[in-house]
């Protein structure tokens, strides 16, 4: 459970530190007129904050899986499976998708429609290609006898990659809606959507790097 504990300790540390900073010198019983500024509130769009919270939840999910992975790995029947080379290509594809959305984000800040649209297409296309690539990896492994039930290492491989792809699939829904805004020219909505997608894509890329690294190293 170390991975989860480290993550949660950091998160809880941040929450507690933030709260203490917000509250330590406040005398709540003193009445006062609202001053214009209220720290934190209103500065971030709720969608962005919601994404932040959601990423914390997803991190918790993957951290727990990684904890389970590391506990289960210690047991005697663990037989690592080979990582097909295709995974490296998939990693590169996912990275390009992330870059594409970063490009779109930059475009959105400068109100450049072509950049937004190209970036979205690259991001979405790469995500689809990545998923197809992962599917090929699955077929490969299954064909060479690495079935999900035959070893816990295999089971974790399929579950973790599958879960990662599912998250990407969820991201694609938002990406599709954002593309709708991008092509209909609704700048504010497209801008917010691009930003959300870009952050989410970066996040999933990092999650993939961690998962891939974990599977390579064990």
């Amino acid at each position: 459970m170390t991975a989860t504990l480290v993550f949660l300790a950091l998160l809880m540390g941040a929450v507690v530190w933030w709260l203490v900073r917000q509250t330590i010198n406040v005398k709540p019983w003193v009445a006062s007129a609202p001053s214009g500024a209220q720290q934190g509130v209103g500065l971030v769009a709720p969608q962005k904050m919601a994404l932040g919270v959601l990423l914390a939840v997803i991190t918790s999910l993957f951290a727990l899986f990684i904890s389970a992975y590391s506990i289960r790995m210690e047991l005697s029947d663990w037989r690592p499976l080979p990582e097909p080379d295709l995974l490296w290509l998939n990693t590169a594809i996912l990275f390009v998708g992330s870059l594409g959305l970063q490009w779109a984000w930059r475009g959105a800040a400068r109100q450049q429609w072509p950049a937004i649209r190209v970036g979205l297409v690259v991001g979405g296309g790469c995500a689809l290609a990545f998923m197809a690539g992962q599917l090929l990896v699955w077929q490969d492994l299954a064909a060479s006898g690495y079935l999900i039930a035959s070893n816990p290492a295999n089971a974790f491989f399929y579950v973790l990659t599958g879960l990662h792809v599912l998250h990407l699939l969820g991201g694609l829904v938002v990406l599709a809606r954002t593309s709708g805004h991008a092509w209909s020219g609704a700048l504010a909505k497209a801008r917010l959507g691009v930003e959300l997608c870009a952050v989410y894509w970066h996040f999933l890329f990092v999650v993939w790097l961690i998962l891939f690294g974990l599977m390579l190293s064990t």
């Binding site: 709540p28 609202p34 904050m49």
Partner: peptide
């Protein structure tokens, strides 16, 4: 976190 009305600080 985001939708508190004016004056509704955390400690209120």
């Amino acid at each position: 976190l985001q939708a508190r009305t004016r004056g509704m600080t955390l400690m209120r």
